[in-house]
Nucleic acid binder design. Structure first.
Lengths: 225, 225
DNA sequence: TTCGAATGATAGTAAAACTATTACAGGTGA
DNA sequence: TCACCTGTAATAGTTTTACTATCATTCGAA
């Protein structure tokens, strides 16, 4: 895919747009690597600064705190998946085919590469699976939701919901199915990797084919009765 | 229901069994209230000690840290839901009826009361919805999983899976459906409350009927094709 | 009555999560 | 060329968190 696309995100997410400067891009790049390594709880700006050979204060000029940085990364991912869905379904009329592509992109958002040199989509995907839902499980959800910090997720869900309605116009829960497919994709991959008794699929390394197959089974069982 | 049941949990979860002493029970009681009030991130043992008029050091004698305390509460909930399912399906042969009861208990685990005086099941349920999956989204999942800290969840999922297989013996993903029904119940309630665009159901106050109906629709669409 | 376990009181440490101040380097516009 | 403005660095400080350690007290069991 083309180098140089710019993901557009809510300006409230950052203090200064990290996509605009070399230092900002370095912050994105190394935070993805370091959060993956340490986990979000052990990750902090001091360690990040040390790793990227800058200072804590400089990182704070780009992001208010580590929660906002994670929210930025997750929003970036939501937008990235939206973008992938758009380009892959562009010329496809059959909504069932579209939904299959959507599911493929939920499960394999990282297969495309390299796209933007300072974002390792593969590792970002791991972060989404492991830490993604922490961004909205906070006491400040409602305030942040009002400020539009979750718009990218909602737009993604709306896009998928539209396809669902095209497949089955009287399906009563298109948004719930859309959000559940996204959450379920991440959850079941995580379960397969860490608590296999909670699922029936097996994943090894980066092969999520069974998860993809299962999501298709769930979706089309519901929509094509 | 009967006063005096004792929920049995992995001994590794705590330093000293909180169910055994008045102070332990006070810790459980007030931590449920305070986590609900502050959210898990802002909650800490200092604030808890102050609230319950004890000391930080005393709390540390029962739980290694706040993560283990949350894990204890969540395990308690998993076991509690298991227990509710058991007593409500005890004399019921029809597995479809059983699954309906399971879904009802996923959504309304709190309707029973009062059961154990130091646990407010209603507020605990709110905590599960808002913070529940933080207990296994950590860098220490694998280690904690090996020590059996998630056994209660797995047992619950296995129980539901057994019922699913009874309904439809050739359903290929019984464990995934079981864990997804549980996760989806909590997620969709949370979405309805905080990001309604991500779902189609409406909940107000403690009325989760629409969520219950939706889960039944999903489950039985998949199982009774 | 005395022993010991449970709790309380107090204090202290190390790290995390910021904030503030000053300095400097490189390009810009007058 | 000089004043200046922006981005980054260096340094140092504050408050809060997450513990740990020590010793005193209390209260029931032996």
């Amino acid at each position: 895919m083309a180098i140089g696309i710019k993901i557009s995100l809510n300006e409230g997410l950052y203090q200064r747009d990290p996509q605009e400067t070399p230092l900002g891009q370095k912050i994105i790049k190394h935070s993805i690597l370091l959060i993956d390594e340490l986990g979000f709880e052990a990750f902090n700006f001091k360690k990040l600064a040390k790793r990227m050979k800058s200072t804590e204060a400089s990182v704070y000029r780009y992001f208010e705190n580590k929660h906002m940085l994670l929210l930025y990364l997750v929003s970036w991912y939501w937008e990235w998946v939206s973008y992938l869905i758009d380009i892959h379904t562009m010329n496809i009329d059959d909504p069932k085919r579209c939904l299959k592509i959507i599911i493929e992109n939920f499960v394999y958002a990282s297969k495309e590469n390299p796209s933007i040199e300072y974002v390792n989509e593969n590792i970002l995907h791991k972060i989404i699976i492991a830490e993604g839902n922490k961004v909205y499980h906070t006491k400040s959800v409602d305030k942040e939701n009002q400020e539009g910090f979750f718009t990218n997720y909602k737009k993604l869900v709306q896009k998928v919901s539209d396809v669902i309605v095209k497949i089955c116009s009287d399906f009563p829960y298109p948004h719930a199915l859309a959000s559940n497919l996204f959450e379920m994709a991440n959850n079941q991959i995580y379960f397969a990797q860490h608590m296999p008794r909670l699922t029936d699929v097996v994943v090894e390394d980066d092969n999520f084919d069974e998860v993809e197959k299962m999501l298709e089974y769930f979706a089309f069982s519901l929509l094509c009765k």
